[in-house]
Amino acid sequence: MSDTVTLDGRELPATDALLAAPARRARLLRLLEASSIWIVLLAAWQLAAIYLPLGDNPLIPAPLLVFSTLRESLPELWAGTLSSFAILIPGFLLATLLGVASGLAVGTVPRLQRIFFPFARVAAPVPPTVYIPYAIAILPTFQLSAIFVVFIGAFWPVFHNTAAGALALEQRYRDNAGILGLSGIEYRWRVVLPASLPHIFSGMGVGLAFSFVLLTVAELFGANAGLGRFVQFYADYADYPKMVAGILYTGLVTYLSMTLLELARRRALFWLR
């Protein structure tokens, strides 16, 4: 399409272009709004690095230094990511699997509610971090103990949300399942599970965020690789550019993982309109 049209011999911008310009400006403005805090933080960081008298060992390394350090450390950080994910993924997946299965069972069988809920009320609020030293002592490898801790942390939010979703199952779905004669495993698989998916995904979101917290904390205790370990290691050696690079990188990995879960949620819940 051409950018202009001619009317009575005068050149006028085509309607496409007329509409596109304000739309483009609005989009640009929105992008600016979304990144404003980042820009302010980056500027403040740069200024602090320049003007704060910190001597030879700057606690606040300049952004540019951090970014170049980040680039140099990428291979090491990538190895750390793999090591961390070897804990996070099995722990989180196991928690999701067992959390959903037990949540569905407890949410649909009143007797299991009477058995499980009194226990969950006491066990779930215990901060999983307190298990870390004992898990490390009792399990053969650090990886296993960290998986266990991540599992405990992610299990409860998934379990609670799944059970809540199953309990909140709308009467019309129960009725329809009853009419069709759906029962047992089939009823839970075809009706209760999909109907509870919105709840399940919010439980998984909380569980995944919590998994990252527990993972990095566990790595401070006894890992010889991993994202939390990277940060702790260079902090011990007062290599602050690397430490800060590690923090930024961990933040990015966490953000990307949460985004991936969000994409999965949207895909699974396409029917929710």
Binding site: N176, I179, P194, W271
Partner: peptide, 19 residues
């Protein structure tokens, strides 16, 4: 209890939205 001998149609939301 329910039976396939007796089918029912509700006012709305009779179909499962995820299928």
């Amino acid at each position: 209890g329910t039976s396939l001998e007796r089918g029912i149609v509700f006012q709305d939301y009779a179909l499962f939205p995820w299928m």
